[in-house]
Design a protein around this nucleic acid. Structure first.
Length: 308
DNA sequence: TATATTGTTACACC
DNA sequence: TGGTGTAACAATAT
């Protein structure tokens, strides 16, 4: 489940690996994944053969300049006047294949870090788009659910991309102060705190995993109404947002579900989870049994002893 | 075969 | 009208 730390991990790793690499071919195995233009939605229908051809024509010959992140969206700056926006949604993955690795393994991709990583052979069953580079290396986009998307936007139209205009502040940004947090959260007095934390209009990048973890460390139950939280509780929640996200970035993300790093290895943050995905297990702090509730169709996990 | 999964949007309801 | 909550949607594994 890629959230801010996982997307940040992918952005940093790909930025390093793709910088200056020239695309020599693009293989689109699932047309519904790709689209062109600033329109809000990924296409419900698969891109037409003409759109696929256009996507390839735009991308081939371009170099990757940089990879950034805004909220959970990856932003690939291309050398020409185009930008590629990528959302991993639930199960999207990027795997970068170094040509040296393929040579070493006789054409079958194997991971260097065998102990910590799943075995991969690429392209895999759920590989939907492949970028190949002039030095024979390649970038694979995999997505079991096919909810993710790759969207090419002309730089002149970046201002019209609705994802950007609706995003709230970045939690790691200096401008995200306690005052900003309290103001934005307080605008939703009747909503439940977990749902507000996960709302991209309030603050971006926090999903099910990290909202659970932040609330555990703050000692606040996920279903608490915002209006009934004290100033101290709000401040405590705020104070835990940055450290938890930063620790997760240091651990290269949580490999829950399908998330892998760009070499196919797993992030290590899952080891540090106190409540997410631990329903029925003992709380690491007090030994109580972790409980789960449904909030708007989503599961929230918490410790009944540590969280009030 | 029904169900669970999650970010995001659509829409009904006060 | 706008904030709020719920359902729906994408596709697949189990």
């Amino acid at each position: 489940m890629p959230e801010l730390p996982e997307v940040e991990t992918v952005a940093r790793e790909l930025g390093r690996k793709l910088k200056g690499r020239k695309i020599v071919s693009v293989e689109v195995r699932a047309p519904k994944i790709i689209s062109i233009g600033p329109a809000t939605l990924p296409p419900v229908r698969a891109a037409s053969p003409a759109a696929v051809a256009r996507f390839k024509k735009i991308a081939v010959g371009q170099k990757f300049v940089s990879v950034r992140r805004r909220a959970k969206l990856l932003i690939f700056d291309l050398s020409g006047p185009w930008t590629m926006l990528v959302h991993l949604k639930m199960t999207g993955q990027f795997i970068f294949e170094d040509v040296r690795l393929r040579k070493m393994t006789g054409g079958k991709y194997r991971l260097l870090n065998k102990a910590a990583a799943p075995k991969l052979q690429l392209p895999a069953r759920h590989t939907h788009v492949v970028f190949r580079f002039s030095d024979k290396s390649a970038l694979y986009f995999n997505d079991v659910r096919k909810f993710g998307y790759l969207k090419l936007v002309h730089d002149n139209e970046l201002g019209q991309v609705r994802e950007f205009s609706e995003y709230g502040p970045e939690p790691l940004d200096k401008k995200f102060t306690l005052q900003v947090f309290v103001d934005r959260v307080s605008a939703r007095p009747k909503a439940k705190i977990k749902q507000v934390l996960m709302d991209n209009k309030v603050v971006v990048g926090i999903g099910n995993i990290y909202s659970d973890e932040i609330l555990f460390h703050a000692g606040v139950r996920p279903a608490r109404e915002v209006a009934k939280l004290s100033a101290q509780e709000l401040a405590k929640i705020y104070r835990h947002i940055r450290p938890i996200l930063q620790k997760a970035i240091q651990a290269k993300g949580s490999s829950v579900g399908d998330f892998v790093r760009t070499d196919g290895s797993w992030g290590r943050m899952g080891k540090f989870h106190y409540v997410y995905g631990r329903k029925g297990q003992k709380c690491k702090k007090c030994g109580s049994i972790i409980q789960a509730i449904k909030l708007g169709g989503r599961t929230g996990s918490f410790c009944p002893q540590c969280q009030a």
